[in-house]
Design a protein around this nucleic acid. Structure first.
Lengths: 116, 116
DNA sequence: TGACAATATGAATGGCTGTTCATATACTAT
DNA sequence: ATAGTATATGAACAGCCATTCATATTGTCA
């Protein structure tokens, strides 16, 4: 891939990640304290395969946003391949698709916490 | 810092990072092949202190953008504390201020390259 | 089948910001 | 001083997109 092209894609990725609502959604989906991963070191899990799934309604409640807004943004995240979903009866469960995002959010968070 | 506040700051950080022109500028400032770092492992340097400085005119030429645009975006990056500058005679040299950004860009790049 | 719950979708809009153009400032050299 | 070079700044505009409102779809249970 040429350089220009890569930068265009990075731009797109960061654009999608740089929205308050979407950040809260992703944050809700990587809440490590509620991690369901069965690996032995989980708790403060840093493993790529460690993720949590939540249905739309729960996400709405947790982040305090309207159902419509959350649904719209979930679609954006899904189109960008950052999350995926699983249907179960009436509900749809969403989960982070990729460990890169987890890393990216951690680095960004570290940055703003160090800067103050 | 409360969670909400952190997310707001991450949003701001990623917003600033998610622009094509600014990405190209930052990319120009972390071009590792031209790294001036004196550490022994440099070449494909992954060290935080390793960075390169360039004056505005050179950045314009390298990324193919107008002087005005580059100057505007340099200001944005500087206000966000992502870069800093040093004056030398007529010219102003800019350089990345922080290693986090380097990491962030690397992870984002890795992501888009794996996704294809 | 009908009522209800969960999620998705479409249209409309208001605010934000990347870019350009024109101009100002700062520094150098003759 | 004057001309020339390097950089910064301000205003204005155009395009994008996050959010809301209203409504559609899908599934469950009685």
């Amino acid at each position: 891939m040429e350089n220009e092209n890569i930068i265009r894609k990075v731009e797109k990725l960061l654009n999608i990640a740089s929205d308050f609502t979407r950040l809260k959604i992703m944050n809700a989906l990587l809440d490590e304290s509620k991690c369901t991963c069965t690996c032995d070191s989980c708790g403060s899990c840093r493993h790529r395969h460690c993720m949590i799934e939540k249905c739309v309604g729960d996400i709405c409640n947790e982040i305090g946003a309207s159902q419509s807004l959350v649904s719209h943004q979930l679609k954006v995240l899904k189109n960008a391949n950052l999350i995926d979903s699983r249907k179960e009866g009436n509900r749809v469960f969403y989960f982070l698709k990729d460990g890169h995002i987890k890393d990216l959010l951690r680095i960004a968070t570290d940055h703003v916490m160090e800067e103050g």
